[in-house]
């Protein structure tokens, strides 16, 4: 019988190896990170919601008058009986998102109130996105920010009533969850490419097609260089798989992968004009954002390496 076995009539004995695994799992999912980091992250995410709804996603608001034969509700819309948007309901939703998001960014009040505000933002933004994608075209750049918004319902991201430098395992859980959602998008995108097109995706003309459809000066330069585009496709899908290394807790490899993610998105934006902002902004969940928090700055010297669990910092 192994050391973890239980004798008849006795309580189960937890082995040392089980304790080690449980401890490692706990350290990974609940790293002690500064609460101020999540507080800054919360404001960044809510500001992004505000920008997308009132600036970048104007096309969603335009769905309010789209021809009704094109309304094709996704499953979640059918389940809750969400009707197609009208000019009135769309304007109302924008107002709700706008007011709730500004309140969330201002970030005052007790924790329960902030949870409630964040819940209003999360559910109303989800409704906005469901209206966006219920006309037959689903983009895959929204999952991470939706996860972030619901994480902020559970952990509202506040340093009220505490030292700004205090660490918090729940703040760590929230940021870790967002990091995982962010990173998963890359290997799963690569997997979907192989699932839909096989290994032939690499030698296909998928980049050329995207450039023809959404061209830019930068992209047009590549359009006449198919070998370069194919090499780019090979590098792209390889990098998407390698992005899982960003799930490591620490280390240079994680930093390299995250820098690569930024470069990948810059290339995509330059070539075909797609910024994936609601997704890409979530890379900030990896950064030592507490250094931007006024109260953290007031109590610490910027550049101090004394933050608890600094191993979680990108670059550390």
């Amino acid at each position: 019988m192994g050391s973890g076995g239980a004798a008849p009539g006795e309580g189960r004995v937890v082995s040392a190896s089980e304790r080690t695994i449980a401890s490692a799992v706990h350290r990974y999912w609940f790293p002690a990170l500064p609460a101020a980091r999540l507080a800054v992250f919360s404001r960044i995410i809510h500001l992004t919601v505000l920008l997308t709804v009132f600036r970048f996603d104007r096309w969603v608001a335009d769905h309010a008058f789209a021809p009704r034969p094109f309304w094709q509700p996704v499953a979640v819309a059918r389940w809750v009986g969400l009707p197609a948007p009208t000019p009135g309901t769309m304007a109302l939703l924008q107002w709700v998102i706008g007011v709730a998001t500004v309140v969330a960014i201002i970030g005052v009040g007790p924790t329960v109130w902030r949870r409630l505000v964040n819940l209003v933002v999360a559910t109303s933004y989800l409704t906005w996105i469901v209206w966006a994608f219920s006309f037959s075209k689903v983009d895959h750049d929204r999952l991470t920010i939706i996860v972030a918004l619901f994480v902020l319902v559970v952990v509202p991201g506040t340093v009220a009533g505490r030292d700004a430098a205090d660490t918090d395992a729940l703040a760590g859980w929230g940021l870790r969850t967002v990091q995982i959602a962010f990173v998963l998008a890359y290997p799963l995108s690569a997997f979907t490419k192989l699932r839909k097109s096989g290994i032939g995706w690499i030698s296909s003309a998928v980049f050329a097609r995207a450039i023809v459809r959404r061209g830019s000066e930068f992209g047009d330069w590549f359009a006449d260089r198919p070998s370069l585009l194919r090499a780019g496709q090979a590098a792209f899908i390889t990098f998407e798989f390698l992005a899982v290394f960003a799930l490591r807790r620490t280390g240079r490899l994680r930093v390299i992968v995250l820098v690569g993610v930024v470069l990948l998105h810059l290339f995509t934006y330059a070539a075909v004009g797609i910024h994936f902002l609601p997704h890409t902004i979530c890379i900030t969940a990896f950064l030592p954002l507490e250094r931007l928090h006024p109260r953290w700055r007031a109590t610490r010297h910027v550049g101090d390496d004394a933050a608890p669990d600094d191993r979680e910092l990108v670059g550390a």
Binding site: A75, H140, T192, K193, K196, S203, S204, A205, A210
Partner: peptide
């Protein structure tokens, strides 16, 4: 299944 849909943008490789 959105928001749990596959990440399928640019996943269809067309012939050159």
């Amino acid at each position: 299944a959105f928001p749990m849909a596959p990440f399928r943008m640019f996943s269809y490789g067309n012939s050159p």
